[in-house]
């Protein structure tokens, strides 16, 4: 008789990201002889955890560093600093063999369905490659069926498919290695509105059926509303607010989240709503403003000199609520 395997500790998250940093070194001026330019701080100290079977929505404007977070976590790019623990193991410390094994557990779905499939491979070839490499028993037909594609697509090339069909193939490819965790990098942003809902539903179904854990990246709060359990909002490489989804939609504590939320179309047309339009452009991540990175665009009425000098830490407001915000005035959120 064998003892039943010890159940995993309830609190242990599947994915644990600690202080992740990714800087892109800039080219030096004057053909490499001049003063070095400051590096692009694409990701600047990001931490979050995702419990097994749950979804974290990662939201932010273009250039805020969302894709970089996803790719460094999967070691598709080398991180500058920080740690990523997957089932308690340090992903950045793995040797190449352990990394190969890990590749089966963590997958990614891309934003652009046109560049994410090899144009010279049929759907069948694309899906068979990972099965072959990892010696898996799955079949192309079963994978296509799982993502709702007819078996006739197996013989097609990507250019013969629509955007939605390609995205389904991309999802099938990620599923082929039977992962536990999938980074969905804006998987519906490039699709027609009518197709977006279908693909979102497919991802939700797959999550339920396969007990998947998602990091779901999006550039607005509307898309993640129905799929995310927790939401993290990124601005200039930093997380400015993180909270359970219901909380963040009901009471956003960071003015940036508030502004993003005001852009989400309200299901009830009668609901009164004051749309906040942010002034100015997103500053360059190579030269983030001092103090609160959001202060130059911040519409908060209480904005003060403190915002310009002192970096607001990401802190729990109110204490014990699990709602984190990086704003000096998180206790008095904007209405």
């Amino acid at each position: 008789m064998t003892a039943p395997p010890a159940p995993p500790p309830v609190a242990a998250p599947l994915v644990d990201v600690r202080d992740l940093v990714k800087h892109y070194a800039a080219e030096r001026r004057w053909f490499g002889l001049g003063r070095p330019r400051p590096p692009v701080r694409a990701v600047d100290g990001v931490s979050f955890t995702i419990p097994s079977g749950r979804t974290l929505g990662l939201v932010g404007e273009s250039g805020s560093g969302k894709t970089t977070v996803g790719r460094t976590m999967l070691r598709l790019q080398e991180a500058t600093g920080g740690r990523v623990l997957f089932e308690g193991r340090d992903v950045f410390a793995l040797d190449s063999r352990a990394l190969r094994a890990l590749r089966r557990r963590m997958q990614i779905v891309f934003q652009d369905p046109y560049s994410s499939l090899n144009p010279r491979m049929t759907v069948q070839e694309t899906l068979r490659e990972p099965l072959e490499i990892h010696g898996l028993a799955g079949t192309v037909a079963a994978l296509l069926d799982e993502v709702g594609l007819d078996a006739v697509f197996a013989k097609r090339y990507p250019h013969e498919l629509s955007g939605g069909q390609r995205q389904r193939v991309g999802i099938a490819r990620a599923l082929s290695v039977e992962p536990q965790f999938i980074v969905c990098d804006e998987p519906v942003s490039a699709l027609d509105v009518s197709v977006q809902a279908q693909v979102l539903n497919l991802l939700a179904d797959l999550q339920a059926r396969r007990r998947l854990t998602y990091l779901f990246i999006a550039h607005d709060l509307a898309v993640v509303r129905h799929i995310a359990d927790d939401v993290a909002v990124m601005y200039l490489g930093k997380i400015v607010e993180r909270a359970p989804a219901a909380e963040i939609y009901a009471l956003p504590r960071h003015p940036y989240t508030r502004a993003l939320l005001s852009a989400v179309p309200e299901p009830d047309p009668k609901a009164k709503k004051n749309r906040i339009v942010l002034s100015g452009d997103v500053p360059s991540p190579a030269m983030p403003p001092p103090g609160c990175p959001f202060h130059p665009r911040c519409p908060h009425p209480l904005k003060s000199a403190r915002c310009r000098t002192e970096v607001p830490p990401l802190r729990e407001v109110p204490a014990g609520s699990g709602h984190l915000a990086a704003c000096h005035y998180a206790e008095q959120p904007m209405k």
Binding site: L76, I108, S116, P130, R173, S176
Partner: peptide, 9 residues
């Protein structure tokens, strides 16, 4: 698609 191939191992 090249990044995807690397991600698949």
């Amino acid at each position: 698609f090249v990044v995807a191939a690397r991600a698949l191992g």
